[in-house]
């Protein structure tokens, strides 16, 4: 690898020390205990062997634990199985590891060695030769004199990604119908159902201060239409229902005797908002702590969200069960570019 012209590593060395101070060279080697005392050296050897032995014991431990501790059905049984298998394996690894390192440190030759560096760049002759080779190749190809070749190749290569990307992009977003963001399953007359027990809610049963997690009627595996996906619909339609003292409500629009229903999907980036504080009527999003005032149309009072939670307008049907009077008046959840278009 090294050439025999000028010692190129000298080019690299730069000294910043004031004149008169010279590099004294490497500090002298400090002998280890084992270098001078044969007993210490023998002891190191025994330690290394013992550490390797520990690894063997670890392997045996894993095999025993495999049969002795099946994972079982409870958290404590899987934890037990996990711990014994894991401790065995840890010894298995660590024994080899500490053994090898101790060997290297206490027994192997510890005299530091010096190797020269060479500048990274190739020599001027090599560079010139490289350019020459490329020029020859280019001349052989004839590309310089035939511009049609150059243009053709570049165009062909430039278009190449298109036939690959087209089918990918065409399919990867399913039907690309982003208008689905705008609608949920809620319609005029859709009953409010409890989540996850799926029962209709009688307005009279909702006491002041209580909170109910709500999904729309029809959001059930046995009742979904074939083109509806349970998860996709649920991700948009979840609602939080709260009953306040009617006098506390700043606006009564869409509410029913102090019962208000808001989308549960945070208008920040979409976590379910569900921590309700009765005293303040504040709803807190656990993700980034946007805080909404339920008494005031779920407006934002603190945090990174800007918009109020969309309200689900409600009333009761003939039987006294809560129903929606319409879908949400605006898209639920996080903002997107064309949201208000």
């Amino acid at each position: 690898m090294s050439t025999n012209d000028t010692p190129r590593h000298d080019e690299l060395v730069v000294t910043h020390a004031p004149e008169g101070v010279v590099d004294p060279g490497l500090p002298p080697h400090q002998p280890r205990l084992g270098d001078t005392d044969p007993k210490a050296s023998k002891r190191s050897e025994r330690i290394v062997a013992a550490l390797f032995g520990l690894s063997v014991l670890g392997s045996i431990g894993v095999i025993v634990a495999y049969f002795a501790f099946p994972p079982g059905e409870s958290v404590s049984s899987i934890q037990q199985s996990n711990m014994f298998l894991g401790l065995g394996l840890a010894f298995c690894f660590a024994g080899i590891g500490f053994g090898a390192v101790h060997w290297a440190k206490s027994i192997m030759n510890d005299h530091e060695k010096v190797e020269e560096r060479h500048p990274q760049r190739s020599s001027d002759e090599d560079r010139a030769a490289a350019v020459e080779v490329l020029k020859e190749g280019a001349a052989d190809s004839g590309i310089a004199r035939r511009s049609a070749l150059k243009g053709g190749l570049i165009t062909a290569l430039a278009l190449l990604p298109l036939p690959v990307a087209l089918p990918l992009i065409g399919n990867v977003g399913a039907d690309w119908d982003v208008s689905k963001f705008r609608h949920t399953m809620w319609r005029r007359g859709t009953r409010l159902m409890t989540d996850p027990t799926y029962r209709p809610i009688r307005a009279a049963d909702v006491t002041i201060g209580s909170v109910v997690h709500v999904i729309p009627e029809g959001l059930h595996h046995d009742e979904l239409e074939s083109d509806q996906s349970f998860m996709d619909e649920k991700a948009k339609a979840v609602v939080l229902l709260v009953r306040l003292d009617e006098r506390d409500l700043k606006h009564t629009e869409g509410s029913y005797h102090g019962i208000v229903a808001f989308s549960k999907i945070c208008t920040h980036v979409g976590c379910p908002v569900a921590l309700y504080e009765q005293q303040t009527h504040h709803l807190l999003c656990p993700c980034h702590q946007s805080t909404f005032d339920v008494a005031d149309g779920a407006k934002v009072v603190f945090g990174p969200a800007k918009r109020a939670l969309p309200q689900l307008p409600i009333t009761v049907d003939d039987e006294g069960y809560l129903i929606a009077t319409d879908d949400f008046s605006e898209p639920i959840g996080p903002s997107f570019w064309e949201r208000v278009k």
Partner: peptide
Amino acid sequence: SGRTDGNV
């Protein structure tokens, strides 16, 4: 000492 840009 003994360690320079020209050696390792």
